[in-house]
């Protein structure tokens, strides 16, 4: 009876610490993993090598990547209005910015579209990619996510930081299934937690405390992805020579693709144009 009681209290305490309930089960759908999990530790994470059989595949090395695809994302037509974010519900957030903060869903300057996720959609069959050693960072600063769109490779560590002196929770949802990948709270300024993803796909991240806070994480099996900057520019560097289908995805405007053939040591420039 005592063990049962202890177990129940521990479960309840765990629920309390991390917002409670099954929402917090970071591995509930097998998509979100604590950092440090390996293939053989029974936690279900893999190393980012994908699910394919390794027979007949080449391991990618930096020496193989001599080609580059660069480009820009344009916007055609009248830019959608950017709505001001209301942060009045939180003492800190409401005083964190001197200027009005605009929604990041549409960020268009001089007809250049920011926050477009560009990646190699196909053309890399036969290559395998190691888990990157460098970490990606998702910061919560001024009650906004930085960056708004983030690309990451399967198995790569993602450091999630709270730079604000207020509580945020990081609630990541698998876009396809609407299941929780992970959901936990960061109560202290400077708090960092690390997570990784084992399945490629799109993840929607939100803060349940501050309704305006949202961002997108796109998980890929290969390292060739970028997010367009304020001037619309992006770069896919260190590609092996080959013919690729490149896709550009924007959270509101949708997806566009084009095919590019690039040789060894060559740099190709492409342009994506979105409109409503």
């Amino acid at each position: 009876m005592f063990r049962l009681l202890t177990l129940f209290l521990c479960l309840s305490a765990a629920a309390l610490v991390g917002c409670g309930g099954s929402d917090n089960a970071s591995d509930s759908d097998g998509c979100g993993c604590e950092a440090g999990c390996g293939c053989d530790d029974g936690c279900g994470c893999d190393d980012g090598c994908g699910d394919d059989d390794d027979d007949g595949k080449r391991a990618y090395t930096a020496a193989a990547g001599t080609a580059t695809i660069k480009g820009v994302v344009n916007w055609s037509g009248k830019a959608p209005r950017r709505v001001a974010i209301k942060m009045g519900g939180d003492k800190f957030c409401s005083t964190a910015h001197d200027d009005t903060i605009l929604s990041e869903s549409w960020s268009i300057t001089d007809n250049k579209l920011q926050n477009v996720f560009v990646q190699v959609k196909s053309g890399l069959k036969g290559w395998t990619f190691e888990k990157p050693k460098d970490k990606k960072v998702l910061d919560q600063t001024g009650c906004m996510y930085d960056p708004h769109v983030l690309g990451i490779q399967t198995g790569q560590d993602l450091t999630i930081r709270n730079s604000d002196p207020t509580m945020h929770n990081i609630h990541a949802i698998v876009f396809d299934t609407k299941k929780n990948a992970f959901n936990f709270a960061q109560t202290k300024q400077g708090q960092e937690n690390t997570r990784s993803f084992r399945r490629p796909g799109r993840y929607y991240v939100k803060c349940d405390v501050h309704g305006w806070m949202s961002c997108h994480i796109i998980v890929t099996r290969n390292p060739f992805h970028d997010v367009s900057a304020a001037d619309g520019s992006f770069t896919l560097a260190k590609l092996p020579p080959g013919e690729y289908e490149i896709s550009a995805w924007h959270e509101k405007a949708g997806t566009k693709t084009q095919t590019v053939k690039v040789g060894a040591g060559e740099t190709k420039e492409i342009v994506f144009t979105f409109s409503r």
Binding site: V120, L124, R202, N222, W249, E251, K252, A253, T255
Partner: peptide
């Protein structure tokens, strides 16, 4: 309405 596209690379 947000885009419902989900890009799954190969």
């Amino acid at each position: 309405v947000a885009s419902t596209d989900t890009e799954i690379p190969e």
